[in-house]
Design a protein around this nucleic acid. Structure first.
Lengths: 343, 343
DNA sequence: CTGTTAGCGCCTTCAT
DNA sequence: ATGAAGGCGCTAACAG
C-alpha cells in the first residue's frame, strides 16, 4: 500500500497496451483480443487498481435528472421525505445531478400511472411512492423499458421491473408491532383494535397481515379485530377509534398502521382510557414523540424518511453511473423507538 | 433548473472576474477586495452554483491515509468493524484514500496512548476505539495538535479535542434496556442482574448508569443489582452469571452490558430458568440472534458496526477534503431488535 | 489584488 | 484490434 496512487497510464504501460485498450477492458467494451484482455485484467488485479472516480466523472461529463413522485397533500412523513430530497440538492448538484419532486394522486391508480407515463424521456431516474395496481405496474414497466431507472419508495410494487425498492419489510414491521403489543399486554385478556389508512395500500395491508399473524399465533389472550380504514385522516381516525373504544370495553390494545395518529390519540384521550390501552403507532412526528414521552404511546415503529430519501438518491445516482450499489448500506431497517431511544 | 450545468468559467464571466478570483472567493482565501468578493458571492448564490466535486478532487490530487485503531483480540463486534473497513477499500481507493486497521491493547491506557502517539505524521486521519483515560486523552490531543484528524469510534473521550464521535448515546442505550426489562417484567417483583465487561470502559459505565437510572426511578418492583465485571469474556461471564442466579432465586431479569453473551446464556440455560428470566443484551451475533429466535433473549440493543465503520470513513474523508459533514446522516441510532425485526 | 495557464486522470472520438 | 490526442472543470503556481 504505497503512496502515489496508480493511474491508468501506469497500468497500461505495465500491461504493454495503451490507455484506450485498458479502458476498454476496464469497462468490458468489445474490441480487445481475448488474450490481451486477460493479460490486462491480470495486471489490474495484481495491483488492486481502481480508476479514480473523480477523473471518471469529470471526463464522462454526464448529468442526471431525477424525479421523486410523492402523494399530493402528503402527511408529515411524506413532507419529511420531500424535505430530505431538498436537502440533498447541493450534494446532487456537486455531482452534476438534480432532483425534482412531483406530486401525484397516489390513491388514484389511473392518475398515478398517467403521471409516471408523462415522465418518460424527461428523467434519467424516478423514485416513486407507488400504489400496487395493474396500471401503475404497467407504467413502471414502460418507464423501465424506455431506459429510465426506477426505484420504488416506501411502498413497493413487487411484480414490476423496478430496479430497486427503498423501504422496510412491512410484514416484519407489522409482526414487530404485534410482538410489542403482545409483550406489553402482559398476558391480559382482551381485544386489540387495528386502524389503517387503506387496505389497498400495499404497505398497510402487509403491516396488518404481519400484525394478525403474530397476535393470532402467539398471543391467544389477544383477539385482534379486523382493520378499520380511515384514509390516514385525523378526523376519520378519531371517529373510528372512538367507536372502537365504545364498542369494545375490553379493548386493551391499539395499533395504528398508517398516518393519522393524532385522531387516534384524541379519541383515546377523550375516552379517559389513555394509559390503560397499549398503543403502537408508526413514524416519528411531534404527536407520536409527545405520546411516547408522556406514556400514551408505548412504542413507535420507524423508518427514517431521511435515510430513505438519501438512499433513493444514492441508488438512482449509482444506477445512472453504472456503479455497483452497496446493498448492506442501502437496506432500510424496521426501527423500534420507545421513550428512551428517541432520536 | 436547466440542463448543461454551469461551470466556474460561466460564473466568472458573468461576475466579471477570472476563475482564479472566483476560486479564491469560493474557498474563502484572502486576496480579494471586499466589494469584488461580495459581487462574486452574489452571482454564485443567484445561480445556486456548486463546483463539480469530481473536477475539484481531480485537480487537488490529494490522497489520504487513514488508520483505524481497534482492540486486539477483539470480539465479534470489533471483527465486524474491521471487516466493514476492509469492505470499503475499493470505495476509498476510487477516492484516492486508504485505510489500515491497527490493533492495540485497548484495556491498557499506556499502551493505547503509545500506539496513538506513534501514528502522528504517518496518517491524515485516525479512527480509534478509545479508552477514556488521561493518557489516551493526551495522546488524542497531541495527534490533533499535529494536524491529524481524529474520530472516536464506539466509545468516546469527551474531554479530548477529537473532531467527531461515531457511536451511540450509551446512557440512552442503558435506559432503553432498563425500560425494556421493566416493561417485559410485567410488574413482577424481583431482582435484576447486570453483567458488564469493565466499569472503566466509558461505554459500559454509561450503559449501566442509564439502566439503573430507569429501573430505580420507574420500576419500584425491580431492584437492579450492582454490575459484576467479566471483562467481556465468556467463561468469566458464565461463572458470574451462575453465581448471580444461585444467589438470587428471585432474579427475574438480566442485562448484559457488553460482549460475552454466550457465557451469560450458557449459565442461564444450565440453571433451567431460561424463559423465566427477562434478558436484554447488546449487539447482533450468531448467539444473540439465536437467543432471540428461540425466545431466550427478549431484546437486543444494537449499534450497526457496518454503519459505524462507514460513517467513520466518510467523516475522516470529509474532514480531509474540508467538506461539511452531514450530521443527520452520520448520527448512529440506538436500535432495538426483537425477533420480528431481526435484520 | 487579479489574471493566465498547465496539468490532474480518465473517456472518447478519430486514425491506423 | 489498437493507439494518439483533445478535452472535462477545477486548482495552484506563476505573472503582472
Amino acid at each position: 500500500m504505497a503512496a502515489g496512487h496508480l493511474t491508468l497510464k501506469d497500468i497500461a504501460r505495465e500491461a504493454g497496451v495503451s490507455v484506450a485498450t485498458l479502458d476498454r477492458v476496464l469497462h468490458g467494451r468489445a474490441g480487445v483480443r481475448d488474450d490481451t484482455a486477460r493479460r490486462v485484467r491480470e495486471t489490474i488485479a495484481r495491483h488492486g487498481f481502481h480508476p479514480s472516480s473523480a477523473a471518471a466523472d469529470l471526463a464522462r461529463r454526464r448529468t442526471s435528472r431525477f424525479a421523486v413522485v410523492v402523494p399530493d397533500g402528503g402527511n408529515l412523513f411524506m413532507q419529511a421525505i420531500v424535505a430530505a430530497v431538498g436537502d440533498m440538492s447541493a450534494w446532487l448538484n456537486a455531482r452534476r445531478a438534480s432532483a425534482e419532486t412531483i406530486r401525484a394522486d397516489v390513491f388514484n391508480p389511473a392518475a398515478l400511472a398517467e403521471t409516471l407515463e408523462s415522465l418518460a424521456g424527461r428523467y434519467d431516474g424516478v423514485a416513486v411512492v407507488a400504489l400496487d395496481h395493474q396500471s401503475v405496474r404497467a407504467a413502471i414497466d414502460d418507464l423501465v423499458a424506455a431506459g429510465t431507472h426506477v426505484v420504488t419508495l416506501v411502498s413497493d410494487v413487487p411484480g414490476s421491473r423496478r430496479h430497486h425498492y427503498v423501504g422496510i419489510d412491512n410484514v416484519a414491521a407489522g409482526r414487530t408491532a404485534g410482538s410489542l403489543i403482545g409483550r406489553f399486554a402482559c398476558g391480559r385478556m382482551g381485544e386489540v383494535g387495528v386502524v389503517a389508512g387503506s387496505q389497498s395500500l400495499r404497505d398497510h395491508a402487509e403491516r396488518a397481515f404481519g400484525f394478525h399473524q403474530v397476535t393470532g399465533l402467539e398471543y391467544p389472550n389477544l383477539s385482534a379485530l379486523a382493520p378499520v380504514e380511515g384514509g390516514d385522516r385525523d378526523e376519520a381516525n378519531e371517529t373510528l377509534t372512538a367507536r372502537l373504544l365504545a364498542d369494545h370495553p375490553d379493548l386493551i390494545g391499539l395499533y395504528n398502521v398508517g398516518a393519522g395518529t393524532p385522531g387516534v390519540m384524541k379519541a383515546l384521550a377523550d375516552s379517559g382510557r389513555e394509559g390503560e390501552v397499549v398503543v403502537v403507532a408508526h413514524d416519528l412526528t411531534p404527536v407520536t414523540r409527545r405520546g411516547l414521552l408522556r406514556g400514551a404511546i408505548d412504542a413507535v415503529i420507524v423508518q427514517d424518511p431521511g435515510h430513505e430519501a438519501r438512499s433513493a438518491m444514492r441508488v438512482l445516482l449509482s444506477l445512472a453511473r453504472r456503479e455497483p450499489i452497496l446493498a448492506e448500506q442501502e437496506k432500510i431497517r424496521v426501527e423500534i423507538v420507545m421513550r428512551d431511544n428517541l432520536p
